[in-house]
Design a protein around this nucleic acid. Structure first.
Length: 493
RNA sequence: GAGCCAUUAGCUCAGACGGUAGAGCACCUGACUUUUAAUCAGGGUGUCCGGGGUUCGAGUCCCCGAUGGCUCACCA
């Protein structure tokens, strides 16, 4: 008697209808799980090069996605990485024993098949199988072929099934790969060097966010998963690597939504002797170059809205944008008291200790952001919320920083990097104050980074692009979970 | 973290008013040598998400919980 949680029992229960088949196959000496199989062609090649391949003997392998039995002959669809190919088996061609084995196979099984290529009466390119090999027996039933796998939870939890039966899903992830490839190509052409910096940080920095914590046993050291690579990349600029980028994961211990996954992919790049105007130009050009390759046009439809990703993009300062959408000119409201009063008239709740810049940003986020549908650069962010950006010379309340918005979402963030170590230390100290006042997302003091700055960092432009969000737009995906293969979900039980 | 919605066969879904749980695909049995959502004949394979409660009787009504989705909050 098998115990309740014995794995063998589970398999027995699951495959009840197929158990007899398994035994029958094994009795016939058929291996359920084969080894290497040499393919001469992929499915798509057979179809594309059909005229040249007609009548030729080919070897294909793939998963059986459909079987249509006709007594002494059978059709099946084989799916491989390139597409689908039909195979045709006749009792007469393969022999009765082989044919009987084929009849014991199921949709979901993986086989290799050899035979001559021909076209059926209805014109479908087909392999007339002479012999075949079982490469992997499926013990579970594949989701239905017609409707595919609709259950969103199952699609994320069992992404392999989603990929197998929903071709559009596969397309999205192929696009994702190509988009990132196009970025690398673009940056390489411009002389940027790809680097990798630590994922585990002693001091999490480079963004305002709550980190994940972890622990290194041998050093008995508490560490944080990085929230951004920024401070390490700038150390490399100081080290003389003048054009660098990193495409990698960031981790932020915050809520999950259609726009947020706890781990997400960022492009961050830094260019010595450049400023945020250079970054702005680079951003436009990069997005345009990527769009040219995938989806192949700068005009894309996202959430039923047509977006034009061809530069130049709209550029407007935060102050002007706020004025435009609220009628209030915050530049004149020098005193925090006045800014607070203005926010109140807009029904925006501000905290007691919110300063001018924080209030301005809140007004911007609530009243402007959602309206920025076509690509729009918002320039000159308040200094309080930009502790790593260089202060504007003509207005010390602001910094040389911009963000790019598309479809109301923040896609890119860039600035002329603050390279004055004394000021950086002051800015960190202000962050530490906020932190002590209970702001868990404020920066910690990073003395090691300030020390690096003290050796002298060239004026530098830095840029970050949220790759997942950009891919959402390029692939018209409504949720970030649709562009991340394995989004974080709560465990089932 | 809050509100709303969903959860029924392996998958996609139906199940008025509370009265013995259904369909299609898949699967099983049989027929069929160019089909393609093959077709034809037969077969229902189920912890109705879980736990309580109301009721003579609960997939259905009530409460609690789980997971997911959307919106909001936090954030990129």
């Amino acid at each position: 008697m098998l115990k309740e949680n014995d794995p063998a029992r589970e398999i027995n229960d699951l495959t009840l209808p197929q158990n007899d088949k398994l035994e029958e196959l094994q009795e016939k000496g058929i291996k359920l799980y084969g080894g290497k199989y040499v393919r001469t062609h992929l499915a798509r090649q057979l179809i594309e090069d059909y005229p040249a391949l007609e009548g030729q003997k080919v070897n294909v392998a793939g998963r059986i996605m459909a079987i249509r039995g006709h007594g002494k002959a059978s059709f099946a669809n084989l799916q491989d990485g390139s597409g689908k190919i039909q195979i045709y088996l006749r009792l007469k061609d393969v022999g009765s024993e082989s044919y009987q084995i084929f009849n014991r196979l199921d949709v979901g099984d993986i086989i290799g098949a050899e035979g001559n290529l021909f076209k059926t009466r209805s014109g479908e390119v087909t392999v007339a199988v002479e012999n075949f090999t079982l490469l992997a027996k499926s013990l579970r039933t594949l989701p239905e072929k017609w409707h595919g796998l609709r259950d969103i939870e199952l699609r994320y939890r069992q992404r392999y099934l989603d990929l197998l039966v929903n071709p559009q899903v596969r397309e999205v992830f192929v696009s994702r790969s190509k988009i990132i490839q196009a970025m690398r190509k673009f940056l390489e052409q411009r002389g940027f060097l790809e680097v990798e910096t630590p994922m585990m940080h002693l001091i999490p920095g480079g963004a305002n966010a709550r980190p994940f914590t972890t622990h290194h046993n041998a050093l008995d050291l508490d560490l944080y998963l990085r929230i951004a690579p920024e401070l390490y990349l700038k150390r490399l600029i100081i080290g003389g690597l003048e054009k660098i980028y990193e495409i990698n994961r960031n981790f932020r211990n915050e809520g999950i939504s259609t726009k947020h996954n706890p781990e997400f992919t960022m492009l961050e790049l830094y260019q010595a002797y450049a400023d945020y105007h250079d970054m702005l130009k680079l951003t436009e050009e990069l997005i345009y170059a990527v769009a040219q390759e995938v989806p192949g046009t700068p005009v894309v439809v996202f959430e039923d809205v047509t977006l034009n990703l061809a530069p130049p993009y709209k550029k407007i300062s935060m102050l002007e944008a706020v004025k435009q959408y609220t009628g209030i000119d915050f530049s004149g409201l020098g005193e925090t008291v006045k800014a607070r009063a203005a926010a109140k008239t807009l029904n925006i709740t501000v905290e007691k200790d919110d300063s001018w810049g924080v209030i301005l940003n809140k007004v911007f986020e609530e009243k402007v952001e959602a309206n920025l549908i076509q690509p729009t650069f918002i320039l000159d962010y308040p200094i309080e919320i930009s502790p790593l950006a260089k202060k504007k010379e003509d207005d010390p309340r602001l910094t040389y920083r911009f963000e790019l918005f598309i479809s109301g979402r923040e896609i890119a963030n860039a600035f002329s990097e603050l390279n004055d170590p004394l000021e950086q230390r002051m800015r960190f100290l202000k962050q530490v104050e906020k932190r002590q006042a209970g702001d868990e997302e404020a920066h910690m003091m990073d003395e090691d980074f300030v020390t690096a700055l003290e050796y002298g960092m060239p004026p530098t432009g830095g840029l970050g692009i949220g790759i997942d969000r950009l891919i959402m737009i390029m692939t018209n995906s409504a949720s970030i979970r649709d562009v991340i293969l394995f989004p974080l979900l709560r465990p089932k039980e």
